[in-house]
Amino acid sequence: MVGVVNIRRDVDDKFYRYRMPELLTKIEGKGNGIKTVIPNMSDVARALSRPPSYPTKFFGCELGAQTTLDEKKDRYIVNGAHQADRLRELLFGFIDKFVLCGACRNPETDLIIVKNKETRSEDIIRECKACGASTAVDMRHKLTPYIVKNPPTTNKKGKKGEGASSNGAHAVATNPNLPDAEGSEGDDDPSAAAESLPVESSLANEGWSVDTSEDAVKARVKDLSTKLQTTLIADEDSDEDANSPYSQLGQWAEANRDEVNAVEVYKHAQEMGIEKKHKTVQVLAQALFTKNMPSEISKFAPLFAKMNAQSEKHQKAFLGGLERLIGVMHPELVPSVPKILMQFYQADALEEEVIKQWGTHVSKKYVDKETSKMVRKASEPFLKWLDEADDDDSEDEE
Rank of each mutant, 00 (worst) to 15 (best):
V283K: 11
V283M: 07
V283E: 05
L284C: 05
L284H: 02
L284I: 08
L284Q: 03
A285M: 11
A287D: 02
A287C: 02
L288Y: 04
T290N: 05
T290E: 03
T290C: 04
T290Q: 05
T290H: 07
T290S: 15
T290R: 01
K291N: 00
K291Y: 01
K291F: 00
N292G: 12
N292R: 03
N292W: 00
N292I: 00
N292E: 12
P294T: 07
P294C: 02
S295C: 00
S295V: 10
S295Y: 06
S295E: 13
S295D: 13
E296H: 01
E296N: 05
E296C: 02
I297A: 00
I297V: 13
I297N: 00
S298P: 00
F300L: 04
F300S: 04
F300E: 03
F300M: 03
F300P: 01
A301K: 01
A301H: 02
A301L: 04
P302A: 07
P302I: 03
P302T: 06
P302V: 07
L303I: 08
L303C: 11
L303S: 09
F304L: 08
A305P: 07
A305M: 14
K306A: 12
K306F: 02
K306M: 11
K306D: 11
M307G: 11
M307Y: 08
N308P: 09
N308W: 07
A309I: 01
A309T: 04
A309L: 12
A309C: 08
Q310L: 14
S311Y: 09
S311P: 03
E312L: 08
E312T: 14
K313H: 14
K313E: 14
H314A: 15
H314F: 14
Q315K: 08
Q315A: 06
Q315G: 10
Q315V: 03
K316T: 13
A317F: 14
A317N: 15
F318A: 07
F318H: 09
F318P: 11
F318E: 12
F318G: 04
L319T: 11
L319C: 12
L319H: 13
L319F: 12
G321Y: 09
G321F: 10
L322G: 12
L322A: 05
E323V: 01
L325R: 08
L325N: 09
L325D: 08
I326H: 04
G327R: 09
G327L: 06
G327T: 09
G327P: 03
M329L: 13
H330G: 04
H330Y: 15
H330T: 06
P331F: 06
P331Y: 09
P331L: 05
P331G: 08
P331D: 10
E332A: 15
E332S: 15
L333Q: 01
L333T: 12
L333D: 10
L333N: 07
P335H: 04
S336Y: 04
